[in-house]
Design a protein around this nucleic acid. Structure first.
Length: 342
DNA sequence: AACGCGGGGGC
DNA sequence: GCCCCAGCGTT
């Protein structure tokens, strides 16, 4: 198809420089694609550089501890990705001798690799003709062809995968990337730059002036606030950090204890002194935490009060030691507030 | 199919 | 404030 050629030419001239575009081995592409899940290119870039410097091959990653992998992932979010990538690296390192498979049945079974990431790695690393349909691709193609299916519904992705395969040229590697790059640079959610778009001549949405109506997407409910007290237990300079549970929000990361207001009211009556700092907010996709930091000196006299609260794995560490722990951004905000008050 | 799962950027 | 972002795994 002639217009596919226009898109590929546009991509060749306008593509952004990215660290993973300097490499073509499957491991390098794989790591980048996992980091890029629901995460913008500019956010990923520095994380990718640090990660690849520390784990240059799939074997390096497979041999690392979960704790260390997390320290390289801290702040990037969706931490389950790090776990699954780590597990996947073990599979490829141990079962496939470090060679990334090209059989889709095998690739699909690697932890953390779903339909998108499989298509992205197989097309970009091996130039195999598989679709890689992400949010960009659905937006671009829905506008190009006035596809009205609700992209919030899972099965809609298949409709776009079929469309991609109808269009797929021999250069699968660049075609998939070109669709995404067009979505990121030109065919953006708001204020699309249609006048400089290479696909303008065949874009049905442009022709009818209805770009902003696409893609069709049903909306979801918003996050309600959760109120907590964030306990900053001190022994001199040292601060108490604990490891969060294996499951749930911010699983396996380190943070300060969070307690509900009800628990705090009871605890408060037993304490002689404490200091209340200004409330800190952290917003997640589906939740809002409003945390009030409370600074308490932890002593042998009052230790009993916290017995029931501090049950997991916890340590008192000096501020300089914080860098050795994977700490979620929500808790860094709390610790930052403490710094401001010294 | 619906939901849980981070954090940042754009408007 | 809201929406979006090179989505995946579980239920």
């Amino acid at each position: 198809m002639k217009y596919t050629t226009y898109l590929l030419e546009w991509f060749d001239k306008n593509k952004r420089q990215m660290p993973w575009r300097e490499r073509s081995d499957a491991y390098s592409i794989w790591v980048s694609e996992v980091m890029l899940q629901q995460t913008q290119v500019d956010t990923v870039r520095p994380y990718y550089e640090r990660f690849m410097e520390r784990f240059p091959t799939v074997h390096d990653l497979a041999m690392a501890t979960q704790e260390e992998v997390y320290t390289y992932w801290q702040g990037l979010g969706y931490y389950r990705r790090a776990d699954n990538l780590h597990k996947g690296a073990k599979v490829v390192s141990e079962q496939y001798n470090g060679i990334f498979p090209t059989d889709p049945k095998l690739v699909k079974n690697i932890p953390g690799i779903g339909p998108y990431t499989m298509g992205a790695v197989l097309s970009i690393a091996f130039n195999l003709p598989y679709p890689a349909v992400d949010g960009n691709v659905m937006r671009v193609l829905s506008r190009q062809f006035l596809i009205e299916d609700d992209i919030a519904i899972p099965k809609t992705r298949k409709i776009f995968e079929e469309k991609v395969m109808v269009l797929m040229p021999e250069d699968a590697r660049n075609f998939n990337q070109a669709l995404m790059e067009l979505g990121a640079l030109i065919c953006t959610p708001k204020n699309p730059k249609c006048e400089s778009c290479p696909m303008k001549p065949i874009c049905m949405a442009y022709e009818e002036g209805v770009q902003i109506e696409y893609p069709v997407k049903s909306s979801k409910t918003k996050a309600e606030p959760d109120f907590y007290k964030a306990l900053i237990l001190k022994q001199g300079d040292k601060i108490y950090l604990e490891k969060r549970p294996e499951e749930g929000l911010l699983a396996k990361l380190w943070g300060v204890p969070l307690i509900t207001d009800v628990v705090w009211e009871k605890m408060k009556s037993e304490l002689v002194t404490f200091e209340v700092l200004e409330q800190v907010q952290h917003v997640f996709t589906h939740r809002r935490w409003l945390m009030t930091p409370i600074v308490i000196e932890y002593t042998t006299q009052n230790a009993k009060i916290f017995e029931e609260i501090l049950q997991g794995e916890g340590v008192f560490i000096v501020p300089e030691g914080l860098k050795n722990y994977a700490i979620a951004t929500a808790f860094k905000k709390v610790l930052r507030k403490l710094q401001e008050n010294i």
